[in-house]
Amino acid sequence: MSFDISVTKRIGDAGISCRIEAGEGLTVLFGPSGAGKTSVLNMVAGLIAPDQGHIRVSGEALYDAATGLDVPADQRRAGYVFQEPRLFPHMRVRANLLYGRRESGLDVDDTIALLGIAHLLDRWPRTLSGGEARRVAIGRALLSDPAFLLLDEPLSSLDRARREEIMRLIERLRDELGLPILMVTHDREEAARLSTRIVEM
């Protein structure tokens, strides 16, 4: 099973509870804003700790409240593409791409070509458009040789042409890399087109 997740967490007055048992391909976590979808991704990435439950990805346990296991974020090998690109503003695109690079990962030139960002390498992040920044953020995550991908609203705040472009890219990642992908969206059309399965929250 690629994602085996069962977590609960109390944040302020709200409670988050999520159960995912998903096989290969792209799993969409679907639901209205405020349901805690991003919090679930953060728990899988190890950025926040659940109160209860377990998280296993491709058979590897990342968190288990029962045994006290909590693998640190930097050792989980999550390819996390946040809702905002979160590019490092003091580094050029090239340095951003190579920040988390592992030798065992994808070839740098191939990835740059796949994403169509070769012409951006010497630019500063603040000079990029929304679509360009998103592609660089995806490239940065891919080059860190992730064991799985977490995509948080990867198509939000993009115009129609850019959306189509990123959607095709996600389809290629899903079909060619064979990485388990957990994607958050609140757009039903997006969910229907990209997902192997949908988990409602």
Binding site: A73, D74, R76, R77, A78, R86, F88, G100
Partner: peptide, 16 residues
């Protein structure tokens, strides 16, 4: 300093 950038660094495999 935006702590979300630090989180991004952590998920990319960087130690604290």
């Amino acid at each position: 300093v935006d702590q979300r950038l630090e989180q991004a660094g952590r998920t990319l495999g960087a130690s604290r």
